[in-house]
Structures are given as structure tokens and as C-alpha cells.
Design a protein around this nucleic acid. Structure first.
Lengths: 206, 206
DNA sequence: TAGATTGTTAATCGATTAACAATC
DNA sequence: TAGATTGTTAATCGATTAACAATC
């Protein structure tokens, strides 16, 4: 069950499989073949089988994959079968939108602290949390076992925030700021810059 | 200057180059080499040169790339040197956050209409726009020359919205809903599902 | 059993990187 | 000129796809 060296391309597809398998589960569909998955997700069935086979033998020859079982397995692989606490840094519109995004809590990924440095935001309640000053970042990361930082501050501040998160011992960063972050190799970064996405899309228009 | 067949990987890197070149420009830096770009962006300089060379000869041997010139060229390539109107469908927290995201307007990508079907949202002003009922989608797409749809509705409604956008003649979709959309080949889709990103990140934690 | 579908190997395809002549 | 750096070709590396024996 332990893994050799899985490419990022493979890892990025797992949540896509998971999402669709969960849809199937809600429709009470018990079993699905790589062919059916491929049809729906517009992917090659061989690729789907190969991706899954990196992590174990989850299917049955002649039958396909049991939906519930595969959901559980993928959750284990992604390590989202356990709780994972995130800190949100930047309580602007986007930050607030994310903290209200209930899907996070459903998925055992929860926002455990929100930070901002603007005096008129500090102390404001957001759901069950209260916006805290950035000074308290390191302490909260330790106290609340926070492993992921979600950066929604302006681009100019993003690197500073990233440095502090790294220093505080965080393991991953989801970066919404439109800038490239430099972090040590043991920290993972995923960029979710909306402008970048739209610009990529623009290329394909006409 | 016209292009053979550029892979998506190349296109996705162009906005990253652009973003950093714009930072350099603000710092009044005139010229940059592929080596320097590679250092900062953590990429192979040969890859950067090759990516750019697909579209033309933008550099000077022995010197490097002129920052302003390259910024303009990449904007042309991505087709963000001209205005591009987007429609936002779903005026929830995320939708509102996006419509307030001023970077869009800076970049000639503007949100030209906002739709939602909830009666208590219709008519509400958002910046210079007013939330409109989904019924008016097709008409607005035509009237305002909208080429891109940004979907921020719940997952269950996303495919329906996508179908209507396609039907209305849209060319690209930025999909924030956590579901895989099926669209015809002439329509591009980029997925920006935040849960998917966090799940991918979770894999790399520890 | 016959049909279906996996897991996996081998073949193909494509993307990244190294190397270097051209040249500013 | 000498040093630097591009654009591009060739070499390498990795990812996708096809094919098929194994087996439910």
C-alpha cells in the first residue's frame, strides 16, 4: 500500500475521481467501471485504472469498482479521512467567502483561525471564529495544530505571510494572491490565482 | 507569429511569466534573462525560452528580454490586450467576492453582468451592476458581448447553467462549482474548485 | 461457461532539459 | 573582442495509451 513516487498529475486527478464517486454514491449507485468513469470525466479508462493501481488493488475484475469502498480509499490516500486545520490569512471579501464555504467543514478540512491586520476587522466575528491580529499567528498555529495556510492577502504582503507560516511550522499553502511564493522544499504550495485562470481561459477564446 | 499546436502546459505558464514581468516592470527593471526568471519562478531557463519561442523571437542574444516588450507580447498572445466581458452566475459569497475583485478590471477582464435566481438577491446592486434573474442570461450575453461565464452556483445547478451558457454562445467557462462539467469541444473550461485544491494539498502534508 | 473488466506490461506519445551555434 | 544569452536541435525523461493475460 505504500507508494513509490507518484506524480503530481496523478494526485490532482484523485479529488476529481472522488468528487464524481461521491455523486454516484448519492445516487445509490453501487459499482462503476473505469470505462464509465472515463466516459463521464472525459478521461482514458486505462489512465484511471493506472492512477488507482498506484495505491492498491481497489477493483474487481469483471465487475469494476465498488463506489463506497473507492470513496473511502481515495480519502485515505489524500489523507482527508482525518481532520485538517487551516488558517486563513486575509479577511477581505475572498477570505470571508472562503470561511463561509461550508463544503470545507463537510470534508474534514476546517478553517480554525482567521487573521487580518486591519484594526477595523480585528475582533469581528466570522461564523464561530473571530478575526485575530497577525501577531497571534504563530501561537494559534501551535495551539490549534494548524497545518495549512490559506493566503488571501494582497500580492505585496503574500511573501511575508508565507514566510511567517513556514516559520510557524505549516506544511502547505493555498495561495490566492497573484504572486509566486518562494518556500522551502518541505512546504507544498498550490496556487489558486483567479486572474491567472481567467488569462489562461482567454487564450482559448476564438 | 502564428502558432502550431501549443500545449496547455505552456499556456498555463504564460500568465505566471506575465505576472512576474509586471512586478519587474513596477520595480523599473528593464531587462531580464531566462536564467533570472528561472531563478525566481523556480523553473528551468530552457523551458522559459522554449515557451516564449513558440510565439516569436522576443529576446536578444547576449542581453535577455526587454521587460515591457515581453509584457506586451504575452498580453497579445493571451488575448488580454483587448477587453473581454464575463458573466458571473451565482451571487453568493464567492460570487460577490469575485465581482469586487478589482484586479479583474485592471486586466481588461471585466464582469459585465451578474445573475442569481434567488428573489431576495435579484435587484440588489453589486458595484455598478445589479443582480439579474437567470432568465435574462441569453439576452445579456448577446447585448453585452459576453464571451466567458464564471459559475459560482451550487454543484447541482452548475451543469444546467453551463448548458445555458453554451447555448447562449459563450466560449469559455471558469467553474468554481465542485462538479465536472460536460461541454462541447469548442468551449473551454477551467476548474477552480477550492475543495479540490485543498484535497490535493492534503496529500502532501507529512 | 461466456462476458466483462481489472491490473499491468509494453508501446507510444509528448514534454522537459541539455547543449551549443548564432549573435548581441 | 570577450562574455552573455538567446533560439533551437537533439537527448532524456516521464506520462499517457493500447493491449492483453488474469480472473471475477
Amino acid at each position: 500500500m505504500k507508494t513509490p513516487k507518484i506524480s503530481e498529475a496523478v494526485v490532482r486527478r484523485l479529488p476529481v475521481y472522488l468528487r464524481y464517486l461521491q455523486e454516484l454514491h448519492e445516487l445509490n449507485i453501487r459499482t462503476v467501471s473505469s470505462y464509465e468513469l472515463g466516459q463521464k470525466l472525459d478521461m482514458n479508462p486505462a489512465q484511471i485504472r493506472k492512477d488507482l493501481a498506484y495505491f492498491g488493488e481497489f477493483g474487481r475484475k469483471g465487475i469494476g469498482y465498488e463506489v463506497i469502498y473507492l470513496v473511502e480509499k481515495i480519502k485515505q490516500i489524500l489523507k482527508i479521512d482525518r481532520h485538517l486545520n487551516c488558517a486563513l490569512i486575509g479577511a477581505g471579501h475572498l477570505g470571508i467567502a472562503l470561511s463561509n464555504y461550508n463544503r470545507f467543514t463537510q470534508e474534514k478540512l476546517s478553517i480554525a483561525a482567521i487573521f487580518d491586520n486591519s484594526p477595523d476587522k480585528i475582533g469581528t466575528p466570522v461564523g464561530t471564529l473571530t478575526i485575530q491580529p497577525l501577531d497571534e499567528l504563530e501561537q494559534m498555529v501551535r495551539e490549534r495544530d494548524i497545518l495549512i495556510g490559506i493566503i488571501t492577502v494582497p500580492a505585496v504582503e503574500a511573501q511575508k505571510v508565507a514566510d511567517r507560516l513556514v516559520e510557524a511550522g505549516i506544511k502547505g499553502i493555498l495561495n490566492f494572491a497573484p504572486t509566486s511564493l518562494r518556500v522551502p522544499a518541505h512546504v507544498s504550495v498550490r496556487n489558486a490565482d483567479l486572474t491567472t485562470e481567467l488569462q489562461t481561459l482567454a487564450y482559448y477564446i476564438d
